[in-house]
Amino acid sequence: MLEGKFDEASLLKKVIDAMKDSVKLCNFNCTENGISVQAIDDSRVLLISLLIEAGSFEDYRCDRNIVLGLEMESLNKIIKNGNASDMLTLVAEDSPDALNLIFEDKRRDRIAEYSLKLMDIDQDFLKIEDMKFDAVVNMPSAEFAKICRDMKTLSESLQIIITKDSVKFNSEGDFGSGSVVIKSFTDLEKTEESVRITLEKPINLTFGAKYLNDIIKSTPLASQVTIKLCDKQPALFEYQLPSGYLRFYLAPKFED
């Protein structure tokens, strides 16, 4: 049996909000350590890897491994019915037909209970070996989101160029071009405002702006995003959860 209680529904609300536009069907794998998901978008360009460790829950138990096949749009409809500050408990039997979601208001005696039918989802799984990266950028997630949104107004591609202590986001469109350069910066008082660049080799990679604009839907989850890049390899964008992560692997664009 699975029983996982979040102190606040807001965490799962944000996670589902971040994923639902990229992937329609997901298997949520529940083990004693927590809940994990691997899902790939229909175009097979973007892979989502989610880990909500048991430590992200107020209470968590899962006696046997359970797979919950969930339709994200349906899950999102139910999740939206709960308030962000409600306690949320996920309950499923050992061989479940449904996932139960219980929202409890902390101040009033109000309990809302929903049941979501499960689906059999035949999903293929990609093996992601330990990847080596040439550059790692830690930066404020809100700033990264703004850059992705702004650059998408110009072109459907966004170029990321990293040299020594700066990252340049460059967009070349039909009617014009634009770029934003950010440099390493340490804010000792507000560490979440800092930009850290770790570079082994200079980077020049191009990504689909559409996918980046799906990834930045994770912005409410974490104040910082970590971007890991390697020449002609998928990039990794990571948002930390209180205990766990939401990662996106995005295939680049390049000439064959």
Partner: peptide, 14 residues
Amino acid sequence: MSKQQTLGSFFSSA
């Protein structure tokens, strides 16, 4: 002209 790659070119199915 750069082409959008897919993840299947980099990762194998498990």
